[in-house]
Nucleic acid binder design. Structure first.
Lengths: 339, 339
DNA sequence: CAACACTAAACAACCGGTTGCGCAAAAATG
DNA sequence: CATTTTTGCGCAACCGGTTGTTTAGTGTTG
């Protein structure tokens, strides 16, 4: 419904209105607009110009019903409070939105906690989406199981237990191993690691990469300065305290939130970076970029990650074949914090 | 489509299938499930149990078409890179999602820049949403104009130029004025302000509130230490430098991003907070909460802000009447940074 | 000029629900 | 027991598009 300048309420214009006005059938109007059937050049132009003039746009709902296709993709993002603090998911979402928009898809979001996936379920069961992107993978992944069972196309950002799922990921293990070995080869002796909850596969990969970096340099990591499952800020603080008692040269942190906290803690204690201790992290974000000194980190184009996931999903929805595992590039940004 | 355990492809079960299986008409099945028409208790139970057993769920698309209602709400979030860094929009989105889900609505997001609202347009013109929530208001607000013209129900988070638009907001001016006057009455002499782009109404309100706080204490603000339009980090840095030359007691920052940068800058120069200079900010976020010292700030329940916007929009969509302007509470959190 | 090929447009069924109305049977009423 | 009311359910139209098939009309060919 819309109003004209006189304030009268006008019903939305439909294909029937167009057909009647031009003395044509629905069929012809539909074909003229979609460009699919056989319509004379003259009639097509007539319809198109009338449509433009009267602001006619086919109703997406009706179209969906006829096609059994919604032109919507669902995105599951974590609803936890701490996830809302990292810009990761928001950036991914932006990347997805941008790509989706360019293909005339819309994006439905389902905020799901680890245990409550009812939004995702409703979205899928109600046929509101043609496919789904999962932005976080867990060790036990109920969304994946659900989507497989429903036979809905889906793409996982990151790794998942299901080896047949289509994944868009960066090679976290390789990136971390690379960064670790670069640091070791720069002459750093003792490196500590503070990494988040290992329930998340991504944290496990970081941990693995760290270890591999040591192996590749024929070194053995000192287990007493490796802190896993540092999910909360107090745990980070206590890790830092322990590290500072140990004569450590460098701290690698699992994500920016941890890193930010570590930096604050070091400043509090008046410990200079990189003078007294070096610091490196796993994602480069605005926060770390603008830190003084800038922090050495692994750079991943998160926006592109989302975009690629969207492109892949749309291909999948359209029946195209896709690589089962798409690896995005990463780069190690060596900054002042590890000089 | 879904597969059974033998791997055969089964078509989705529709209302017709249910009707045929139970030897009833579509009408009766529809009424039994929606609970609207006159159906005997016995038949209703029969239908419901059959539906549950065979996993039948009415197709939302078909329902939408029949109702001319989608049970979707659209949310416009800014696509700018810097907006992606503040947790504000993500938290609002979470609040909206949660409330929407509890009312069986789904959420479509349109990432829009100030100048490109094509995603919003597509969403609305294609009838994919019943209403829209705008999460950021500008001085010249093309989304508002568009939505009014299309006669689509919408709710604005924050203030907007259009005085008839339904708004959910906190009283930024009052909050800032309150905080400012509290600080002045605590005996602070010279207060500097660093606030972001005044194109955003929210920044303008903060500025206004700051001024009002001075007026209420019969004081006049020193214009030379007020920095407007500090949109970028270098601008913040230069503001801090200028402030430090001026013998200022306290810095109030316009948002957490600015505040974080100010704190970093102060630490760099080894200036202690609150010892040598006090700091206060306008939102309390995770980042500032965990700072040492914790930062005095205005606390707004952003999650609830989104939730209220969603509730209001759904009421509006359902034809209910709503307050034109809903003001959320705020509180001033006095922390160590201004002791 | 009849027979045929080809083009443009319409008919009608369909996607999967909702809903106003009508009808028969059951229940309530006088 | 006749009459009115209520109840349970189905018919068929409708929401706004898409699409396989048919028909009318035009041009081509022998």
């Amino acid at each position: 419904m819309t109003e004209n300048k006189n304030g009268e309420i006008l019903k939305d214009i439909t294909i029937n209105d167009v057909a009647k006005a031009l003395n044509l059938s629905k069929t012809t109007v539909s074909r003229a607009i979609s460009g699919k059937g056989r319509v004379s050049e003259a009639t097509r132009n007539l319809v198109l110009s009338y449509a433009k003039e009267h602001n006619y746009m086919p109703n997406a709902i009706a179209r969906s019903l006829a096609h059994s296709k919604t032109f919507n993709i669902g995105v599951v993002i974590p609803s936890d409070a701490d996830a809302a603090e990292t810009p990761f998911f928001q950036r991914v979402l932006m990347g997805i939105c941008e790509t989706a928009a360019s293909r005339d898809y819309d994006v439905l979001v389902a905020a799901s906690s680890e245990h409550d996936i009812s939004s995702l379920k409703r979205m899928v069961i109600n046929h509101k989406v043609d496919g789904v992107i999962l932005t976080r993978s867990l060790k036990h992944d109920s969304p994946v199981e659900f989507l497989k069972q429903m036979n809905v196309p889906f793409v996982v950002i990151g790794e998942t237990v299901d080896k047949n799922a289509v994944q868009v990921d960066n090679d976290m293990t390789a990136a971390c191993s690379e960064m670790t070995s670069i640091l070791i080869r720069m002459g750093i002796k003792s490196i500590a690691l503070i990494v988040g909850n290992l329930e998340y596969i991504v944290n496990r990969r970081r941990y693995d990469g760290f270890m591999r970096g040591f192996l590749e340099c024929d070194r053995i990591a000192d287990q007493s300065i490796i802190f896993q499952n540092a999910g909360s800020m107090p745990m980070v603080d206590s890790a830092v305290s322990k590290i500072l008692k140990k004569n450590v040269d460098c701290i690698i942190t699992g994500d920016d939130l941890i890193c930010g906290r570590v930096l604050t803690k070091l400043r509090e204690k008046n410990i200079s970076v990189p003078g007294e201790i070096k610091v490196a992290s796993f994602y480069n974000s605005f926060m770390l970029e603008n830190n003084n000194p800038p922090i050495t980190s692994i750079n991943i184009d998160v926006h592109a990650l989302g975009g690629t996931a969207a492109t892949t999903l749309i291909k999948l929805i359209s029946g195209g074949s896709v690589q089962r595992k798409i690896i995005m590039n990463h780069e190690i940004l060596l900054k002042k914090s590890t000089v």
